[in-house]
């Protein structure tokens, strides 16, 4: 692989369900190259969320290896993994995960505030970030005063505040209407093609996956199909 930002080598993750053991991710090997947009598809229960968590260091493998940004994720302490995620990885979720009592700017600034950066500096950086998302007039609004598409753009601004090279999106359009969903997908595409970030997105929507330049379909914890769409150069 030319320049892999994530490498899985026989990565396996099991869960107990009652007395049974479920192999959610079953010896998957794959590499994600820097600057690419990978979509992971599959029905619920296919293992796609577990795979995303393994790829992003939220879970470590029971067997096999996950190399994340040059680190063997299985060998890192919980604290080191947390720092790795904080400094190099952005997360975007289906339900936005914004704090309802904070304004848009405060939500976006939160990762900086948690890292004990000066409040004024953090907030002005957050406002700038929101302006680039077309939300300059929404910085002092609380989440419940925003539309779904606006909330997701706030969440993306928050994911970008530390300027991470790697972004994970878990069903980012799952809670949006089709117009707002497309705006979010276009934004993610821009983050890849214009800013060179690496994007890994889980989705069950084939139309959303079509924004990726690679589509991996999972079934029963294994890769069923791995399609290069040849779509990097947009």
């Amino acid at each position: 692989m030319r320049d892999a930002i994530i490498t899985l080598d026989g990565a396996t993750r099991r869960f107990k369900r009652g007395h049974a053991v479920i192999t959610a991710v079953d010896a998957i090997s794959l590499a994600v190259e820097r600057g690419t947009f990978t979509a992971i598809m599959g029905k619920s229960g296919s293992g796609k969320s577990t795979l995303l968590h393994l790829m992003s260091g939220l879970l470590t493998p029971d067997a096999g290896r996950v190399e994340l940004l040059g680190n063997d994720a299985g060998q890192l302490s919980d604290n080191d993994l947390t720092l790795l995620r904080r400094d190099y990885i952005g997360f975007i979720f289906q339900f936005f995960n914004l704090l309802p009592s904070l304004t848009a700017a405060e939500n976006v600034a939160l990762p900086l505030l948690l890292a004990r950066r000066p409040r004024g500096q953090a907030l002005s950086r957050a406002r700038e970030m929101l302006a680039t998302m077309g939300l300059a007039d929404r910085v002092d609004h609380k989440p419940d005063e925003l539309s779904g598409g606006q909330m997701q753009r706030v969440a993306i601004a928050r994911a970008l505040i530390n300027d991470p090279p790697l972004l994970f999106a878990d069903e980012p359009t799952g809670n949006l209407d089709s117009v707002a969903g497309e705006e979010v997908l276009l934004l993610l595409k821009d983050l890849q093609t214009r800013q060179g970030r690496t994007i890994v997105m889980v989705t069950h929507d084939a139309k959303a996956a079509a924004y990726g330049d690679r589509i991996i379909t999972l079934r029963d914890g294994r890769v069923q199909q791995d399609i290069a769409t040849g779509g990097v150069a947009v």
């Binding site: 595409k189 084939a206 079509a210 990726g212 330049d213 589509i215 399609i227 769409t229 779509g231």
Partner: peptide
């Protein structure tokens, strides 16, 4: 696979 490639090509036009 063919359909996914077609979706991707249409999506590129859309972008």
């Amino acid at each position: 696979r063919v359909h996914h490639l077609r979706l991707a090509s249409l999506t590129r036009q859309k972008v």
